[in-house]
Design a protein around this nucleic acid. Structure first.
Lengths: 344, 344
DNA sequence: GTGAAAGCGCTAACAG
DNA sequence: CTGTTAGCGCTTTCAC
């Protein structure tokens, strides 16, 4: 490009810049900017002439330069455990769509439940100057929250909560409470709550964030406090199936297994089947999340629908509000719904 | 920050820049750059001093500025139909992980099988100057491929193929051929191939890319050509379940339904159950993809495992090779494996 | 309505 | 070993 002149639109393979366009059109860069970005203060004649030339030369705006200059990257970071879990992928899907409809693109990254990875990802995203962050934190604790605040980036959490940081999720507590109530109404006198090991102090120095699971447990327990006449247990072994099976075999009353996730319910159903225990004949079963794979399972597992797409959408909308400086509610709840099935 | 001086590390909330660090340390920006980015030509004494100050002031590199200056964004675009489909989300998960292990972050965006969205996304990502692109194209055709080439960005496709563009996937043709063979060996004399409507010229002007599904069909047909004594049909109605059911009821021979996706197999199994048709007693059933939800389904559906994570990983690795300018194979195949189940 | 110029924060080539 | 300087491509302010 000697002398700063381009001879043919398709001649040179390198991307054309605003500066070159300016030279070609014999105007200043400012004018090109006005023409291409719909800014005022330009005659429609020159505007169209410039737009025409830009098209001919396949001009492509350089969003990195633009970001640097405007101090906005138009990108947001999404940080989740992984995308294998349907819950997270469906949510990311909704986030990505909502973001794009507002001109934002999403960096999606997965922590694999590793605290150090999470830290690195967050810092990297901060360095990339994302305009906001939606995260499902695995970490918790004061130090961690301070670290997040020091990023000075608008953050919305989903799933697990972090005190002082805006949060979108279903009302886990209420949903679990209502589910227990639902089971009780169905006539069961004994409920066993199946959940992953909570407050596992050992792993990763007890910093793992399991607030969400914990709230489900709390909701369940609250209902049980009200219904003193009912029996309840909590099963949080890693290998819960054999224990559950022996409860079914040795218990006098028919037990309903209320699982804090559909995944556990599926596990249990599978093991029960292998052991010759029939659901709901020998035991009740209820899940949580209404994963879409349930439609293929028979018997239809009773569960709680948590409209995960809505969580994704609302978290993004909340984040956008934070980005433009509006105040937002610290916690927004998305509706849940009990989905009757054949197992309760 | 009057006079360009910062008094306290924690005093000012705005991020500190390399220029300010230079002033504080009484060195030049070049030296700070050398210290912070491990470049040679600096004494370890000043390096450590600068690093120390950078830490005190919570210096955070500005990757946007860095990208602009170096002409590399260290980000790559991932473009898929959606993340609801397990296939895509598992792949994106692997891509994201592999990318990060090489310092790249991934913009994940979903087209929802809309040609116009796909175009917009690609152009936006190009404007963001992603260093590479992994995509599962919905579009096909010469014009489209030219458009992709004009982006002048390294591209790797997965799933659907595009002539002339590097591609990573399983060998659909071979896998389908082998599956048909497997079914035949199991003693079936009649196979019905269930797939989505191929060559659907109507929708989106026939530009929809269904190469992947097509290759599965071709593999099936090739085997059938060899085995003239066997009967075969192809079922590609939208509402295939009733048709399949009537085939089971009216056919003289036991039919195996070979579905081009586990999703169809699941659908069929469900409908069959509702209609009192038992698998594999009344009909055989084979799927494709080995979706992980199959472990929860009984009977265990016979299927083909396509190690989708491997596709994600390899596509990213191929892309990285393209980015550094290495030559790559136009097509790399990832191994497939037949997963015996109880339905064939 | 248009032009000129000073950034945005970092990199890299060159001079000392 | 360290400093200087000219970009990277776009935005924005202020003159004219």
């Amino acid at each position: 490009m000697l002398g700063g002149v381009r001879f043919h639109p398709d001649w040179c393979s390198m991307a054309i810049t605003i500066k070159e366009l300016a030279e070609i059109c014999n105007v200043s860069r400012g004018t090109v900017d006005r023409a291409l970005n719909g800014r005022p203060g330009i005659s429609s004649a020159t505007r169209e002439r410039i737009q025409q030339v830009a098209r001919e030369y396949h001009y492509r705006p350089h969003l990195i330069a633009s970001s640097l200059s405007r101090g906005k990257s138009m990108s947001i970071g999404v940080v989740v455990f992984d995308l294998k879990n349907r819950f997270f992928s469906q949510m990311s899907n909704a986030i990505s769509l909502t973001a794009r409809s507002h001109g934002y693109f999403t960096y999606v990254s997965v922590t694999e439940k590793d605290i150090e990875s999470e830290r690195q990802i967050l810092h990297n995203l901060a360095s990339r100057r994302v305009d906001g962050l939606i995260m499902l934190p695995i970490t918790q604790g004061k130090t961690y929250i301070r670290e997040l605040k020091e990023l000075e980036i608008p953050i919305v959490t989903v799933g697990n909560q972090l005190p002082g940081i805006p949060h979108v999720s279903i009302n886990e507590f209420e949903a679990a409470y209502a589910s227990a109530e639902y089971i009780s109404r169905a006539g069961y006198r004994r409920i066993c709550f199946v959940c992953p090991p909570l407050r596992k102090k050992g792993a990763q120095n007890g910093r793992l964030n399991i607030v969400s699971q914990d709230q489900r447990a709390q909701g369940f327990l609250r209902f049980m406090e009200k219904k003193r006449e009912m029996k309840h247990e909590i099963l949080m072994e890693k290998d819960f199936s054999p224990v559950a099976a022996s409860m079914v075999r040795n218990g006098k009353e028919k037990t309903a297994f209320f699982c804090s996730s559909d995944v556990y319910a599926l596990e249990l159903l599978k093991s029960f089947r292998q052991m010759g225990i029939s659901v709901p004949r020998d035991a009740g079963l209820m899940g949580f999340d209404n994963l879409d794979i349930l439609t293929f399972i028979s018997p239809r597992i009773t569960t709680v629908s948590t409209s995960i797409e809505e969580v994704g959408k609302q978290s993004m909308e909340t984040l956008l509000r934070l980005i433009v400086g509006e105040k937002v509610r610290k916690t927004s709840y998305v509706p849940y719904q009990i989905c009757p099935g054949d197992t309760i």
